[in-house]
């Protein structure tokens, strides 16, 4: 009987032998110890989303870029902590020791939006921001056989037909939802949100004609525009990405609404000044690195640097602004 156990273990180890080689390289990094001060061990960069998410990819690109500038040959490892509507990871960063070994790669969703619902232990100013790293706008997109060729035609339609236009979001209170509600408020129109759970589902909804439009990230929108399925009507963000110079901003249409999805590195509050500076400088240099910028562009996000104070200002401003929007539509009290 024991033979059988041994046999199955042997088979397992043979099967695994092939791939364990690839693993060794990555675990070696953990061993190089040095005497000098920070960092004495590996730095964790927590991502509150699952593997394969765009935030994770941003984190991996930046961590790899910043590693070069971290003294003592220490590395930065990206750790996925998904769950709890992406608040688990953020909660973990919030509760970690402020020693610089635990950092978070968080987005506007955790930093400015989730706290508004009042169910998280952290709020918009409970982190020590280190720097803002990337930003991306969202596009109001419709199917290409829709009757509206331009944003103005669309606006005219929704003005005449309040509550008729349906759009797909990735959840109530998501950045997608907020961006459209901001437009509704600024243009004084009414459109109807249909909440789905993922970007893929929203695309399906528009493709199948179940909703008339959606607010999409450039990466998604681009592909369907290329294939001739979708048409972009407007840019709901604050700036124009390189590949989308022709898409009008709401600002240009005389509407005061802009919602960007930003991502940045934060630490638990109480981080020593020198450690903060060291981490900030490493990530800043990574962000300035042309090859890092190139990789970010490949996944359709734009590098955007802001220092700690400025980043906090942005978080707080978004927090206040989105709070107003959410109150208006009755999602929070």
């Amino acid at each position: 009987m024991k033979k059988l156990v041994m046999l199955s273990m042997l088979i397992l180890s043979l099967i695994l032998g092939g791939c364990s080689q690839t693993q060794k390289a990555s675990s070696e990094n953990n061993e190089g110890q040095a005497n000098s001060d920070f960092p004495k061990k590996t730095i964790q960069l927590i991502v509150p989303y699952a593997s394969g998410s765009s935030t994770e990819m941003i984190a991996r690109v930046l961590a790899k870029g910043a590693e070069k500038y971290i003294p003592n040959g220490q590395s930065i490892v990206v750790v996925n902590k998904p769950g709890g509507a992406a608040t688990i990871g953020a909660t973990e960063v919030h509760g970690a020791k402020p020693d610089g070994y635990t950092l978070g790669m968080l987005t506007v969703s955790q930093l400015s939006l989730q706290p508004l619902f009042g169910k998280t232990v952290f709020t918009h100013d409970s982190f020590q921001p280190i720097l803002q790293a990337t930003v991306v706008p969202q596009f109001l997109t419709v199917k290409s056989d829709a009757p509206w060729k331009t944003f103005d035609e669309w606006l005219e339609y929704v003005k005449k037909n309040p509550g008729k236009f349906t759009y797909a979001t990735v959840g109530a209170g998501s950045t997608v939802h907020i961006s459209m509600e901001a437009l509704n408020a600024a243009a004084n129109v009414k459109t109807k949100a249909v909440h789905f759970e993922s970007g893929g589902e929203t695309v399906t909804a528009v493709l199948g004609g179940h909703t008339q439009g959606a607010s999409l990230l450039p990466q998604t929108a681009k592909e369907y525009v290329k294939s001739g399925d979708f048409r972009i009507l407007a840019n709901l963000g604050s700036y124009k990405p390189e590949a989308h110079q022709d898409t009008p901003l709401l600002k240009e249409k005389g509407l005061d609404a802009e919602v960007d999805v930003f991502t940045g590195v934060v630490a638990p509050k109480g981080l020593p000044q020198d450690v903060q500076k060291l981490i900030h400088d490493a990530f800043k240099q990574a962000l300035d690195d042309p090859s890092v910028q190139e990789q970010l562009k490949e996944i359709d996000v734009d590098p955007k640097y802001a220092g700690p104070e400025e980043f906090q200002k942005e978080i707080t401003e978004s927090y206040n602004e989105y709070g107003k929007i959410l109150k208006n539509i009755g999602l929070v009290e």
């Binding site: 397992l12 695994l16 791939c19 364990s20 693993q23 990555s26 675990s27």
Partner: peptide, 8 residues
Amino acid sequence: WIFAKVLS
């Protein structure tokens, strides 16, 4: 070994 090393 399986979880931490092989599957990281």
